[in-house]
Write a protein that binds this DNA or RNA. Structure first.
Lengths: 230, 230
DNA sequence: AAGAGTTTGTGAAATTTTTCTGAAAGTTCG
DNA sequence: CGAACTTTCAGAAAAATTTCACAAACTCTT
């Protein structure tokens, strides 16, 4: 209850995971949950759950646990999810772009895809997702960002396209980017970037497979059972 | 040069990122790179780059740097990417499943989608991706895993489907799972799971947006004494 | 209402991960 | 060859994150 520190990025991600689980609990009619139960389900340490929450306040009741509904509401506020966040997809003509444009899971969480962009003339003008309007040329990004109040850009472009897209993105006025392109984009003062690299995910799994294959020695002695959350 | 520790999971992920960058350097004809240059491009500390590599051996040359080609080859070995890794997608009928089934980026990195599964009769039997054969019913998973030597399962199923898919997956004989379902799967002794949650990515971006919106500081002290609705 | 049993919140300890630093090794140039 | 640079390697220090452990707060039972 004294000094509040800056929560680690990992804490933020876990909050999102807690949120999802709390929603399902609420659905099941569960009223109260303890840090221990939460931790068990999510393969975490109970103290970590408590500490994660403690960065933001005292949400629990000693001897009882956390009210599912209240905790859920708090996390929604912490993550800024009360308001709808408008999203645009760049590279909407590609397969991943299309899949995300039509993914209904985002809306459930208050993210709305409000615009689609591409640079390929064969998709520009077509309608991929009713709600998001016709696919627009990337040229229009800054204008549309303002008009539709876009806050997050999702990049689903091929690696080669980064060069021609980068400036548009950084100057679009958008403050957050979720990059699926196989190319690490760096956050700046103005723009937070999260990179999600599908190949990296597979490659790190491959590493674990190699370890299990009974390590052909690349490093002398090692043994580790790693768990990765999200 | 003395004791080798278990490399952190974060190191493994960075290796994959180095690998990608090294490949592009090699493409550009660059022969040698220093940890400082690598670090600059990837927004890391040079010492971290060196330490990451040092977990696995001494790959550099003092006063010079790292041979791009050699380092690339080493990382490929470390990550177990010399051999083709066979992958299957469960939930291949969904949009994300289809997108991944057709994604060409995996093959470039030596991952081959060798089978597609679903439980929806309207997609079973259809051909979504030529190389991967017709979509099969999940029932056939264990058999096909053996036949086609599948090592990694990609899950692109809706949250509700987890219950009916979980046992198939854990008993399939596969040692690695990449889970895109909005539900945290926990690694076991036998099966390493990596969870990629698209909503979590957006939600943590939302958190950063909220921070920027409302000055630098998080919620003040008074964030509430909870009454746990009894 | 007292005692037994839970569970949170939190400072302190432990652990992990990152960064610093300086010696060692290599290169380049005069 | 020697001096001036460069850059890796690795031990030490620093920083960040996780886990421990226990007092405080609350519930429940008798």
């Amino acid at each position: 209850m004294a000094k509040k520190l800056v929560p680690p990025q990992a804490t933020i991600r876990r909050l999102s995971v807690y949120l999802r689980y709390l929603s399902s609990l609420e659905n099941d009619g569960v009223k109260v949950i303890s840090s221990a139960d939460l931790a068990t389900r999510l393969a975490l340490n109970p103290a970590q759950v408590r500490k994660d929450l403690a960065y933001f306040g005292e949400f629990g009741k000693r001897g009882v646990g956390y009210s599912v509904k209240k905790l859920r509401d708090h996390i929604i506020k912490i993550l800024g999810l009360q308001q709808v966040r408008s999203v645009a997809i760049i590279g909407a003509g590609g397969r991943l772009g299309r899949a995300l444009a039509l993914y209904t899971g985002f809306e459930k969480r208050n993210f709305k895809v409000k615009a689609l962009f591409d640079i390929d003339n064969s998709v520009i003008g077509t309608t991929l997702a009713p709600e998001a309007g016709a696919v627009l040329h990337l040229d229009e990004l800054p204008k549309i960002v303002k008009e539709r109040n876009i806050e997050i850009l999702i990049l689903t472009i091929p690696a080669e396209a980064i060069k021609s897209v980068y400036d548009y993105v950084m100057l679009s006025g958008v403050k957050a980017v979720l990059n699926f392109a196989p190319f690490k984009l760096i956050s700046t003062e103005d723009v937070v970037v999260h990179n999600v690299d599908l190949t990296t995910e597979l490659e790190s799994l491959s590493y674990h497979l190699r370890l299990k294959e009974s390590g052909i020695d690349i490093s002398p002695e090692e043994n580790g059972i790693d768990d990765t959350g999200s």
